[in-house]
Simulated assay, not measured.
Amino acid sequence: MKPVDAYFLEQKEPYRSIMLYVREVILKTLPNVQERYSYKIPFYNIGKKPMIYINILKGTDFVDVAFVQGILLEKDFPELQNYNNRKQVRSIQIKHIEDLDEHRFVMLLQAAGKQLEQSKKAWFI
């Protein structure tokens, strides 16, 4: 079993279901994305550049779907939050699967993928 698979299966509900659903939408929407296990969490890269990571932050009750270049997307996608005062990363917090608007999430994934492909590097701040 791959480490990323083990990570998802080790999560408690409802987090496991949320993460597996988000993973499915990411992989279906972005066929060129590569799933990796880095820093003990799942990352989704385009080429060698990280685009998204999924995590449950300590002391929270949601799945944090974080976009590495989220600061460049927040104008068009106001659902992206600057959680915990991060310089560049913006994320959506999901407490229940029903909270995720799949159509809007797909649009966000496509915009993030296009943005990252045009960038020289993922971390710029």
Rank of each mutant, 00 (worst) to 15 (best):
V63Y: 03
L27K: 14
P42S: 06
F8H: 13
S38P: 01
D99S: 14
L116D: 00
L27N: 11
I18P: 10
S91R: 15
M19K: 07
D99G: 13
I54L: 10
F77E: 00
K48Q: 04
Y53P: 00
E74H: 00
E24Y: 11
S91Q: 15
A66K: 14
Y44W: 06
Q11Y: 12
H96I: 05
R90K: 15
I56M: 06
P42N: 07
K87F: 03
D101S: 13
K114R: 11
N82K: 08
K48C: 05
E79W: 08
Q118D: 03
K48E: 03
I54Y: 09
I41R: 11
L20F: 11
I125K: 12
I18H: 03
N84Y: 12
M1K: 15
H96E: 05
A111V: 05
V68W: 01
K121F: 00
V25K: 11
S38L: 10
E102G: 09
D61T: 08
E117I: 11
L108I: 06
K121N: 05
V4Q: 15
K95P: 00
L108A: 10
R23G: 02
Y7G: 13
K121R: 15
I41H: 02
Y21P: 04
K58R: 14
Q110C: 04
F62Y: 10
Y83S: 13
H96K: 15
E24Q: 14
L80P: 00
N55M: 05
K40R: 13
L108P: 02
Y83M: 03
H103C: 04
K75G: 08
I125F: 09
Q81D: 01
T60E: 01
V89I: 14
G113D: 07
A66V: 04
V33L: 14
I94G: 05
M19Y: 05
L73S: 01
V25C: 09
D64H: 11
S119A: 12
P78M: 03
I97R: 15
L20D: 03
K2A: 09
K87E: 01
K120S: 07
L72R: 11
A122Y: 07
S119N: 06
S17V: 11
P31I: 01
A6Y: 14
Y37A: 12
Y37N: 14
P78R: 13
P42V: 02
F43Q: 04
N32P: 02
H96S: 09
N55G: 08
K2L: 13
